[in-house]
Design a protein around this nucleic acid. Structure first.
Lengths: 201, 201, 201, 201
DNA sequence: GATGAATGAGTTTTCATTCAT
DNA sequence: GATGAATGAAAACTCATTCAT
């Protein structure tokens, strides 16, 4: 099983897709940049679309896996769960920008049948975020008047990390995560229990 | 000057680029969908790249123009200015999703010389947001400890509107704007002057 | 309307398809042999399959047209009608061997939707032959005990002409036709009216 | 010698060639449909052309063998010999339609050197039919005025069986043979000896 | 004896663009 | 001012075949 070659192909394709977009990337480019012949590439993957699907699937698997792991260690506390998701998301976006941007941007390039599976997973994740925020509202620890918009804002902000963050900059991932966690809690208007509440204005 | 035809071309190209991406759109598709011959299209635009440039330029002109207008009516107050920018941005993203998504997504498809101009304008806009937030901090009405991240969060959240908002849904644009203004102020941790502060926790 | 070019393409493609078969003919070969560029060919025909369809359609149009014409001049007499069809068929197979062999052989290369139309026309023609033979039986001028097999035999024998007849040989088309007419009447066991019958053996 | 595998390959290739034609069949299709690897297939056959040659050879061997056998049991009587050949041919076409159609249709796909052998065998068979018909003429039992065309007609009609006959239909092979024997005798205008002749009209 | 890997030339088709009219 | 014709390069993908193991 020459999984090394497969990984090389996937990796190269991911970079090309991320840089130029699926539509503008030629499979010849991928072969060339992988240092292999066109036919060799086709020996491992049956086509361009399959390559995209594999990349998106892998990207989603990894991302969702890290979300699950984070949640598993977070307990029942909505705030803790939100923090866990934000941390997992920001970390993933920062550490895997190509995986992230393709997953987010190239959905339109998926053929209908693959798109359906993709959308189902996204919908599941959306439900997860929404459920946590709702739980926080129910428990009174989140006080945002617009939970749906808050959710969208938190996700958009986390996802955007993939587009600007550079790991060789002055800001470390851990610090980045801390800031985004703080921002997310601000957005949902987190008011921890056991703290004296200020009266409503 | 048959500017009607030009507008039709631009409009069609914009939709195709938005739906499939620049790289995946063929100039024949655009001609076909415009109901005109390939040569006619070339009579009005010298090439595909020029079409993209025109679309992005127009999109940016319109967007920045509405930002300027909003700011012009906002006075010196940083909060008011931020509100103005958020309102202009959300409104534009909601009302012109194709213009928005192309401007945001297809920068990579611009050839280097055009890209430079694009990036300069974006940088200018970033400065504008940053300046306003900084002014708010200086005046003490914004209290976010992470102004740069707050700025990115606000912009990301506003931009994302282009991807999900549907004008025929139940939420009107005005309501949408109100919510996003509120969210933005939350993100920058707006504490209006003249209001009794709660003590720091 | 550059119908000259179109005709050249069709003619070339017909020869190639007839010589090598649809599957073994490359569209490059056709372009090369037509003395035009690959793209020029695609300017006139949208693809290989369409080329085949046009060729088969044209071949069938011409053949069926000549059958109709022959029948139109043949009156109500079944024997005369059969003679007319045999003459038209043999003449067409002899004079247009490429058109004939493609129409007969390359049905399998038609895509399902085109195939349906083809089969419908063939079925109609079969009905025509069958109807004439049945009429002859009803009138007592044809006495074959196996009309369906007789029909198949006559058609097969006529069609085969396309495969072996060479117009530059010693046998002229008119003589050829005469022989096949005679053979066909033998096959249906033609016994003209008004002639004293020999008693059954 | 794993002749089972060889037979499987040949059988599969025959079906594919018969369905799509040699030119349109890929050797990968054959391997896939045989349930074996490409390399395994190449282990048994050195190439596509060799496969075709083997199939055609086998088909001709079998067909000619059954012709020889039929003739061997037919004695010196030209009518009996013709009947024997028609029976052998119709039976073979009906029972082995793939073998038949490939042998008939795919001669053009044979490379020149193989083609020569093929044509020699065909020529031999033609001679055989012609010889029998001539003998019948010489003996006065066949009275067709066009022996060559009669021969072609009989062969064409028999060969065509491969294209339409379905063994699961209502007509059994034995009945089919009987009809075609009768038709063939009609075509050569068989007049058995010892029967009182009607006077020429 | 058998196979997965690899290849280079080939396939059909589409691309953005130019040009003669 | 407008268009059909034409093109060469490139697209995605498949071909029959070879070879190292």
């Amino acid at each position: 099983m020459s999984s090394t070659t497969q990984k090389l192909i996937i990796e190269t394709a991911r970079q090309e897709f991320a840089e130029r977009g699926y539509g503008a990337t030629s499979i010849r480019d991928i072969a060339r940049r992988s240092g292999m012949s066109l036919s060799a590439l086709y020996h491992y993957y049956p086509g361009k679309q399959e390559l995209l699907r594999a990349i998106i699937d892998e990207g989603m698997d990894e991302y969702f896996h890290s979300c699950e792991e984070a949640l598993a260690g977070a307990g029942d506390d909505p705030a803790g769960q939100l923090v866990a998701l934000v941390e997992a998301t920001v970390r993933f976006r920062a550490e895997h920008p190509s995986k992230s941007s393709i997953t987010i941007t190239e959905q339109r390039s998926l053929e209908p049948e693959h798109l359906a599976a993709y959308e189902a997973r996204i919908a599941g994740a959306t439900q997860q975020w929404a459920g946590i925020i709702q739980a926080g509202l129910d428990e009174g620890v989140f006080t945002t008047p617009h939970p749906e918009d808050a959710r969208r804002a938190v996700i958009a902000m986390c996802n955007a990390v993939a587009q600007w963050y550079r790991p060789d900059g002055e800001l470390g991932v851990d610090d980045l995560v801390e800031r985004y966690v703080s921002l997310a809690l601000t957005i949902v208007e987190y008011r921890p229990r056991g703290v004296v509440r200020r009266p409503a204005r």
